[in-house]
Amino acid sequence: MRKQKETAGVLSQSKIAPGIYDMWIETGIAADARPGQFICVYPRDKSTLLPRPISICEVREDRRALRIVYRVAGQGTAEFSGYREGEPVSVMGPLGNGFPLEAAEGKRVFLMGGGIGVPPILELAKELPVPGQIIVGYRDDRLFLKEDLEKYGRVYIATEDGSAGTRGNVMDAIAANDLQADVIFACGPMPMLRAIKAYAQEKGIPAYISLEEHMACGVGACLGCVVKTAQVHHHTNVNNARICTDGPVFEAGEVEI
């Protein structure tokens, strides 16, 4: 699974919710990509130096294309949102470790996504060896990727304004539907991941959470994107792990969040 940087081609792009874009890219990176891994996308604008880390949402069956669903958060992602079919896009990947699928074997599983943390849950649900209980949280009823997720498991929705599913967050959706699990896989904002970590500790079950942080290199060299770890990390030899390379997925008990 060698990392590569290449000029790939945009296959399609559409806006699927306010500020949320859905792009399919034809790229050799798709061949080895696993759920929970990410790619770096490089803006063309030379005033923007750094790649944008974006999670892999889906890999096409023939493993020659992959899908990213991302939010326009600044100059770089605004540029990406303007790309049209047939245009080049500079990408590097696959990056990071991804979710440990084997941990789901024979288990009751929660697949939890919040906001722009929902996209990686799709490929995860698709490749998981068992059907997952998919619990996803949104701000309001503009529910992106819901139909895609429904193909791979029962989907439970939470919205902050109560306009769809359970009013509140993903934890409220678990309680409202009286759901149970032996293992959790999750991606989302830090408050959600903290709540999941606390819930998993209380239940005594493992939770694999995907983290994000400002990055520069994406390959583990710059030490920009670290997270505090409970133990001295084997690579860094301090209580820090690199999210880009040692993560982005960590067992919640390993990290101080």
Binding site: M215, C222, L223, N240
Partner: peptide
């Protein structure tokens, strides 16, 4: 070993970047 600084440690600026890694090293 040095643990380095808290995050965020990097930020992009026009035509460059800022870093404050704090010399994390093993």
């Amino acid at each position: 070993p040095w643990p380095g600084n808290p995050v965020p440690r990097v930020a992009e600026v026009y035509g460059g970047m800022l870093n404050a890694i704090g010399l994390q090293n093993p």
